[in-house]
Design a protein around this nucleic acid. Structure first.
Lengths: 340, 340
DNA sequence: TAGATGCAGTTAAACGTTTAAACAAATTGT
DNA sequence: ACAATTTGTTTAAACGTTTAACTGCATCTA
């Protein structure tokens, strides 16, 4: 039952525990004969060094904490699966593991961070969905504890992050729609306090201007990231007088794009012809929608790898060369934007 | 920077480290005055016991491992989000945490289990998506290492599991369809080697018999859990001669149900009237499909709680009262089955 | 009054590693 | 040929807890 310890191996090989450690970690010259004896003994007993003991001695945990707020039942998190996979996979390459802990509220989350830092539960944190004035960022910066973020926050705060270039993303969407012949392009934006929403709106505005297209103020619709809000507001857009009625919608998420599609369907408007719709995220279901949804895919795997590489460096006290990484999303063209 | 240790607290309070430990863990009678001094000193220094040290001494990790195979890009895992939340939340209540580690292949996964057991990385495992002759179950049973499974396996293997009653689920779906007036009900089943698929098929057959409805062999279609297969095979069903053509489909998953709906749409058949469709899982997107998808919701939160309660008991060497838990799914009726 | 009992605290070992320092033996340099 | 260096190994401390065993001391019991 009980696993063999380094002492058992030492006894079996007839050497000291130090020698066993040196051999197994290759951390010092050891005689050929002794090395052989140790390795054989370790093999024979099936010995593997106990991780807790090693961690205590090294005062590290090789654990990285990741927390996310549970998704409300009427929404979905299109990338959690991929993201968790990406960071766990990347962490494994550095011999780290991911510790997950969900928190219902922001206060609870902050308390857990405090706790974990003080009790030495993890070596660092991965944040996601950061926003302006993000309390988590503020707290961790103040504690000077290693962390990285998927998402940006206040520009004056100096911390390592990776983000998707949302501005470029919506700009790509608009350019694509313009190329398809659409002109009256609306934008389903997130509330003003969302930094990500600001970037995406910015890309829309920039690309519209670049294309020499005027923007009717009614075309910029701010709603929460909810299907029903997007649905309702899109119905509103479609009821605008003919001249002002949008012929395309760039949504800030696939969830909202689905709301827009459903609104058009229920209004008897053909999606992909009379109304083009573009989403954001490339949720797994996007390709199976009718019509299949044109959307912006985030390079989740690369994001995860970059984040972990930076975080591991921070945990080991190394400097991070380039702590601000902005990656472009990829436009995945499907029928909802009139192509094909 | 460095956190205070129990020695710092002891010095600050003018007592021994043992006393500090006794006070903070409430594990022994301690004088009122001394207790006060210790607590104040701990407060003053912001002391929290180091978890690694505590774990080493207790020879435990308070970590539970959970692994899942990454979802292929053309599929989706409708419940990972909820499930991870449920187990992490439940674990937290017992002061445990979830360690995630994805594995690409089954061999890799088995190797990782071995590794984690031998190095004492975790106290127990949570498996999901178990099947007949599941190598993970076999391995962990042989190692006599604590684990629980979301899903069943060979009946002769004695281990703790929680599962959704798939047989009852599809039976509920069939009864509901019969009540709605459908008679020629088909079933999109999983391959024969899928235990879960067997149960779901069994429920379909039982309920059809119970309703006194004959089953045309062509109505039982076996495919992988993929949209495109379900789509293709549903097209086939819809091309059957009028008398044999199904008027309803019970799918083994929401992903397959989406394939069926799309097949009907593309064949110009109205879903929810000419063809009813029922899915399984209640994926977050199910309610936003057109028509909204009738489906069977799994009680994920309860599953997670039950699993963790059992696993924690096993980790602490306690006996589990009822190690086999079968929970009924809940039929969520929406328009795709002709209701409303 | 001597012994037993209770109480409140301390000492020291233990958990299983790693690693700096010490040591003995073999090798090198002059 | 003797000191200096190198090589291979061991001893012992350290990481930060918990806890069994022990020590005084006061109180009770017969």
């Amino acid at each position: 039952m009980a696993s063999p310890t380094i002492r058992d191996v030492a006894r079996e090989a007839g050497v000291s525990t130090a020698t066993v450690s040196y051999v197994l970690n290759n951390s010092r010259r050891v005689g050929e004969e002794t090395r052989r004896k140790v390795i054989e003994a370790a093999m024979r007993l099936g010995y593997r060094a106990n991780i807790t003991a090693r961690n205590l001695q090294a005062s590290e945990t090789r654990l990285l904490g990741y927390s996310w707020r549970p998704t409300p039942p009427d929404q979905f998190n299109p990338i959690l699966d991929q993201f968790l996979n990406a960071i766990a996979q990347a962490a494994a390459h550095h011999e780290y593991h991911i510790l997950t802990f969900p928190a219902e509220t922001i206060e609870e989350e902050l308390a857990i961070y405090q706790d974990m830092v003080l009790t030495g539960q993890v070596d660092g944190f991965i944040l996601s969905n950061t926003n302006l004035n993000d309390e988590r960022v503020r707290t961790l910066l103040k504690m000077e504890f290693p962390f990285v973020a998927f998402g940006r926050s206040n520009p004056e705060w100096d911390f390592a992050w990776v983000d998707v270039d949302g501005k470029e993303g919506t700009a790509m969407a608009v350019r694509h729609l313009v190329q398809q012949g659409y002109r009256r392009i609306a934008h389903l934006a997130w509330p003003e306090d969302s930094l990500t929403g600001q970037y995406r709106l910015g890309g829309y505005q920039a690309a519209m201007e670049e294309a020499g297209l005027g923007v009717d103020p009614a075309w910029i619709v701010r709603t929460e990231n909810r299907h029903d809000d997007a649905y309702r507001r899109t119905r509103g857009l479609l009821e605008l007088p003919r001249q002002r009625r949008p012929d395309a919608v760039v949504a800030s998420s696939d969830l909202m794009a689905i709301g827009a599609i459903n609104a058009a369907l229920d209004a008897g408007i053909e999606v992909g012809k009379e109304l083009a719709v573009v989403g954001f995220d490339d949720a797994p279901v996007a390709r199976y929608l009718r019509p299949p949804l044109t959307t912006l895919r985030q390079p989740i795997t690369e994001i995860g790898e970059r984040l972990i590489t930076m975080l591991v460096a921070l945990c080991q006290g190394r400097r991070v060369d380039d702590p601000h990484v902005l990656l472009p999303p990829q436009l995945v063209v499907r029928a909802s934007s009139g192509a094909g």
